[in-house]
Each structure stands twice: as C-alpha cells, then as structure tokens.
C-alpha cells in the first residue's frame, strides 16, 4: 500500500514538473494572441501582433537570415560531417583518438568561449587580411563548426548498424568505387543524411550565443532580433515571433524524429 501511495505521489510530482516545463512556452504562445499590450492580463483574442510582424521589415529580414544561415550551414555540415562519419567507419580499426577528441571539441566547448574565440579570431584575421568581416559568412563558418560533429556521429552510427558484408556484396556485384558511392552508400545513407540535415537545421535555428558573437550589423537572425527587442522591453510582438519559432522548431524536430523512426 505504501508503495502505491509513493507512486501516486510521484505521479503528482511528474505532472507538476510538466507544468513547470511547459508553462513558460505556453505563456509565450498564449500572450501572442493577447489583444492588449501586457503579459500580466488577458485582454481577449487577437492576431494584431502577427499582423504587425508582417509589416516589420527587420523581422522579415531576420527570418530570412535565420533560414538562409540554417540551410547553407546545414548543407555544408552534412557534406563535411558525412565524410568524417564515413572515414571514421571505414578506418574504425585504427587508433583515431586525437581525431575523435577534435570532433567532440565543438560539442563540449562552452558556447560563450566558442563564440568569443571565433569573434576575436575573425576580428584579427579581418584586421590582417580584410577577409572574414562579421556577417552571414562568419556565422555560417561558426555554425558549420558546431554542426559537423552531430552529423558525423549520426552517419557513423548508421554505418555501424549496417551489415559489413554489404560493402563486399557491392564490390562482388561489379560496382566500381564510384558506382558503390552512387548506388549503395548514398542511398543507404539517405535517411541518416536527412535526419542529420534536420538536426543541423534545428541546432542552427536554436543557437543564440555563437550567432550573437559572430554576427555582423546586417546579419541579425531571429534569436538576435528577439534578444535586442527584449532588452528594449517586453512586447507582445516578441511573443508572436517566439511562437512562430517554437512551432517551426517543433515541426522540424518531429520530422527528423519520423525519419529516424522509419529508418529503424
């Protein structure tokens, strides 16, 4: 009996925790439809903040930057990361310790150190050579750097889950090295590559700190815009942008999950 009461207590705690986890997001979403300019009181349903967003060129620009940054960096990261994942798999019998440390580095590095290192580095390079002036380019560079490891790990684990004789079978069935890449490795990897792309995309959209330090004056993304807007004062308009971001990230994450599930 004691046991059942204990479990019931835990269940109550679980639901409280869920409220704790989702309350801030729900509040943001709810007040994005509030008709009055406060998050302290509910004044009725309205879409006025969304309408206002549509006419805000800065926000539209920021959405564009965010998507552009996420797409470009994800494409580069998927290519480079997949190559690393393949190399790691093909040569997994070797001692690759240093390489693995290098690949894990972007994951474990505190993002403030990551962002500031890149900023300081880019500033110096820019001063010496005129290259790498802060903007979308430097942001892409930084994002690719932290996306590569995740792609490499996804691709690597897909390969590890594969019957190793498939590689032999492809050779045995007259596939030349290029044909093996085109007709065996890439098609087999397709679900993993898609899921890696979605994860990279999510990571890019989610990132604030690294973007913040590598961004230029003309390349603010949505999180940077929100950051700036918050510092000027809370406004329901931010609620609307944030709601759009929550919805889109959730959508992409669910898509990625579905791809992963179908693979398994």
């Amino acid at each position: 009996m004691q046991n059942r009461r204990f479990k019931k207590g835990l269940a109550v705690f679980w639901w409280l925790t869920l409220i704790f986890l989702y309350a801030p997001l729900l509040v943001v979403m709810m007040f994005s439809f509030n008709s009055i300019n406060t998050s302290a009181r509910w004044g009725g349903f309205s879409l006025r903040w969304y309408e206002r967003l549509l006419h805000n060129d800065v926000v539209i620009g920021a959405i564009g930057h965010t998507l552009l940054l996420a797409v470009i960096s994800s494409i580069i990261a998927v290519i480079l990361g997949a190559m690393i994942g393949y190399g790691l798999y093909r040569h997994r019998a070797r001692k690759l310790g240093l390489l693995i440390v290098l690949i894990y580095l972007p994951i474990v590095m505190p993002d403030i150190v990551f962002g500031i290192s890149d900023m300081a580095f880019f500033v110096q390079i820019n001063r010496l050579t005129g290259l790498l002036s802060p903007g979308l380019g430097t942001m892409v560079i930084a994002h690719v750097t932290f996306q590569i490891p995740f792609v490499a790990l996804i691709v690597y684990s897909r390969f590890v889950g594969l019957d190793a004789t498939l590689f032999d079978a492809a050779k045995d069935l007259y596939a030349s090295p290029w044909q093996r890449m085109l007709h065996f490795i890439l098609p087999t990897l397709k679900p993993a590559l898609l899921s890696a792309f979605f994860l990279s995309f999510t990571l890019s959209v989610d990132d604030f700190v690294i973007s913040f330090f590598t961004a230029g004056p003309e390349s603010a993304t949505l999180p940077i815009y929100i950051w700036g807007a918050i510092r000027r004062g809370i406004s329901p308009e931010i609620n609307a942008i944030a709601t759009l971001m929550i919805a889109s990230v959730a959508l992409v994450a669910v898509l990625s999950l579905l791809f992963n599930r179908r693979r398994a």
């Binding site: 509040v27 604030f208 700190v209 999180p223 929100i226 944030a242 971001m245 929550i246």
Partner: peptide, 20 residues
C-alpha cells in the same frame, strides 16, 4: 522544451515572473 531557443525560454520566464 530544450529544443526551443534559450532566449525564448528565458523570455517565457520573464513573462511569468515580471511585476504584476
């Protein structure tokens, strides 16, 4: 919830905790 942007999550708490 951790899939959403850090800034937005903090902003959510600002909404919940601000005066009034």
């Amino acid at each position: 919830p951790s899939w959403t942007n850090q800034v937005i999550r903090a902003f959510g708490w600002m909404n919940l905790l601000s005066p009034g």
